[in-house]
Design a protein around this nucleic acid. Structure first.
Lengths: 255, 255
DNA sequence: TACTTATATTGGTACTACCTTATATGCACT
DNA sequence: AGTGCATATAAGGTAGTACCAATATAAGTA
């Protein structure tokens, strides 16, 4: 028997098929896919195999499935790296310290590039996040949100979507930590850093922007170390590791 | 009916369950999981749902499944970001230029950090990749391999696994391009860059290492532009986009 | 026209059966 | 006793069917 695997790895092939369909433009953003039963029949596979492939794409955030409605190709690729990043952190035993270090390596350079490229509209958007933080008041979750948005806006202005996606994902994984550290200081502490970075970018001063961002992150790293000391280390690491997909952890763990 | 979704999203919950098992240490690296039938029964779910979850983990590279043998937890997390990155490139329409730009943003800083941290063993490993390139001769694929290994070794020396994983993955996605560009120049051209970077790191000269790496990547970026001009643009982009999981694309596309 | 109800559509789950492959078992033969 | 082949067992891979639950749409009614 020369033929080795006639019908092996159907799921992998299906994923490749979807990739090709996207490349060829047969599948556009937001477009609805045929019903699973029809699609399985026209692809010549069982509904089981098809659903396995679709589930992979759904977890990766490529598609969205809604019961009673249908399956749609997502327009936004923002969530794609989320779940894999969580597993990477898990399997490699990445610590919060190392995640922060990654920010320290890249974000100053991104701030520098943002300064070189920022348009007036970009600055307006950045200023808006400052206002958002000021207005958040006691709404702590909104403050965190605006804090992260400030940094993500800088990523966007820097103009490289690869870095932007990767580090927005990284921020997501650090979200629970950012929450911890920001409780150690008052609003004005963070605001000063953000303002100085904003102003440097506003002056299109690349070197100064890099410097200010570095200062900000070094400060944040210090706060993280403080948080480590205040909370027991094990409890903190637990919070890092147990990041859920959409923090949907309602029912029984079922062992 | 107050209960909204009693048995919805079983697959997602299963993935969360596996995450917890890894966190708790119940699942160690390289460990074999129970057979699907047994596991499904003990988890109280159908084999279908379980297989969907396992397939997600398998595509992400968290586990490996072998017919007739069993399912094993992978020790290496290197492949985790690969497939998601491919889809990110696809959906966002990331160009080779932008991928290269991401390298330009981060790798100089990583080279700088590598210079500050390199041990004698690290330098030996780095030197080995230079020798490997020299010895590759006409074996083009080995040359590429050693070229990429040089950069990945620097990532490793830099000491941040998050950046290391992310940019090793990015290199993987750029592999076909590296191949293209390196065909435009002779071996000695690349070797000179690598040697100068190696020597700067050997002197523990962080600033010089950053500068040399920047030069190297700017040169590579220029070569990429040349390659763009030589080959028709459409053909090139096609090669970027059609990256397969394991370049396994044997049988019919089945539409 | 607006609201309610009934029906059809669609994804989600479970179960069964069978195939292919890898490993273990055991028997016959040397 | 050792070797080699045939068989049995176990594991993942695929296919097919049936049913459930949520949603959208169409039909009907006030």
């Amino acid at each position: 028997m020369l033929r080795k695997n006639q019908k092996q790895d159907v799921t992998r092939k299906l994923i490749e098929t979807f990739k090709k369909l996207i490349i060829e433009g047969a599948l556009g953003s937001g477009q609805r896919l045929p019903p699973e039963r029809d699609l399985a029949r026209s692809l010549g596979v069982s509904r089981n195999s098809l659903r396995q492939a679709l589930k992979v794409l759904e977890i990766m955030g490529v598609i969205s499935q809604r019961v009673g409605d249908g399956t749609y190709l997502n327009g936004d690729a923002a969530l794609i790296l989320g779940e894999p990043m969580n597993f990477l952190i898990l399997l490699d035993g990445i610590t919060s310290h190392e995640l922060m270090e990654a920010r320290l390596i890249v974000e100053p350079e991104l701030a520098s590039r943002a300064a070189s490229r920022a348009t007036d509209e970009d600055l307006k958007a950045l200023r808006q996040t400052l206002i958002g933080m000021e207005e958040s008041g006691e709404d702590h979750s909104r403050l965190i949100e605006q804090d992260m948005l400030f940094h993500r806006t800088i990523f966007h202005i820097a103009g490289n979507r690869v870095c932007s996606r990767m580090f927005s994902t990284l921020h997501q994984s650090l979200e629970s930590l950012v929450e911890l550290t920001s409780q150690l200081v008052d609003l004005e502490h963070t605001m000063e850093f953000h303002r100085s970075i904003y102003e440097a970018i506003g002056r299109r001063d690349a070197a100064e922007s890099r410097r200010r961002m570095l200062e900000h992150l070094l400060d944040a790293k210090g706060l993280l170390t403080l948080a480590h000391e205040k909370q027991s280390r094990s409890r903190l690491e637990e919070r890092i590791s147990s990041l859920a997909i959409h923090s949907k952890r309602d029912s029984k763990p079922t062992i």
